[in-house]
Design a protein around this nucleic acid. Sequence first.
DNA 1: TTGACAGGTTATCAGTCGATGCCTACCGTC
DNA 2: GACGGTAGGCATCGACTGATAACCTGTCAA
Lengths: 194, 194
Amino acid sequence: MSTETRARMSADDRREQLLRAGLRAFSRGGYAGTSTDEVAREAGVSQPYVVRTFGSKQELFLQVLELACAEVRRAFERVLADAPFDPEEPEDWGRLGHAYTDLLADRDLLMVMMHGFAASGDEQIAARARAGMGAIYAVVASTGCTDEQAEEFIAQGMLLNVMLSIRAHEHLDESLPLAALTRCAFGEALEVLT
Amino acid sequence: MSTETRARMSADDRREQLLRAGLRAFSRGGYAGTSTDEVAREAGVSQPYVVRTFGSKQELFLQVLELACAEVRRAFERVLADAPFDPEEPEDWGRLGHAYTDLLADRDLLMVMMHGFAASGDEQIAARARAGMGAIYAVVASTGCTDEQAEEFIAQGMLLNVMLSIRAHEHLDESLPLAALTRCAFGEALEVLT
DNA sequence: TTGACAGGTTATCAGTCGATGCCTACCGTC
DNA sequence: GACGGTAGGCATCGACTGATAACCTGTCAA
């Protein structure tokens, strides 16, 4: 019937595609602010299909959030696998930080994490967010650094999250104080993101 | 008609009350996830009245977000006004941090800020969030500390925001890594919050 | 050839939401 | 004591949303 044959996918491939579509869609509007129809359009399928594939909108969001956290975690794991890591070596922390700023460049992962944190009024979402953060912290802690060093690193990451989510890096000329904070937080990574 | 005479308020008093109600309501569900009807019930007035008082739901949220940011800013200003501040004195930073953890105890300010950050897909909300963050940073920077010191302080604050929003402090027994991060982030403030 | 399963759609619904219009009741003032 | 302005409610609307049900269709085994 349709001129372009609708590509039939295996359920697994389709699920993967829907998760990616959900990542992009939820990134913009968050859990409550994004309709399942937007996710469907993003993926090029019908809205009921999205809902049925995951059972509910909530379950879809939970899996998208998990995907985002896992992506961050894997990026860190890759850095640690690439070369030995010395917690007392600032350059090694730089490699880890660089992996994170690279990840934040596409914005979708970042925003889904932020929405996950914020939407933690829903206990199920909160639980998934805790699991994700715990796993990420565990990887950082596995370097053998002190708790304080790991905490400091994560804290810097959370600041980057916030600054990027409010698009501080795109408005450096509006507020001098905020611009100073932005420059200090991003350092030389600022050019990459703009 | 009604047995209990409905207290008529001046428009200013009512506006103030609605902002407080909005703070509590939006704290739970965020911008998209909270109906104007919930705000109305929280304040004990009718839904249309809430909308008409602020013109739109968005304008209400913007003002609530501004209120939350201003409250944080004022808390810092109070600390700096109370006693001289030496950026090289860890105890002075402790006073500032203590003011923040005290503020976070009621959760509403915190969550509204997080929702404001996350809802920054809406450019107007993003702008208001940038203004709020800029003002808060300006107060911290006014101590004469270095940009790095201020950035470090704000970063710690953002981590506290995230940990509290996902209720990490209420689930210390579930995930060892997350518990370690929580304890390290909150330090002795942990008891106050639980 | 047939049939059954899996991928996917269309139609539809019951509920919710933000907003608007119109009405009422209270209060100060002349 | 009439009157006008303002606080605030009530009814209602049109748009949207998540979910369900029923149906269609390509593919592969027997």
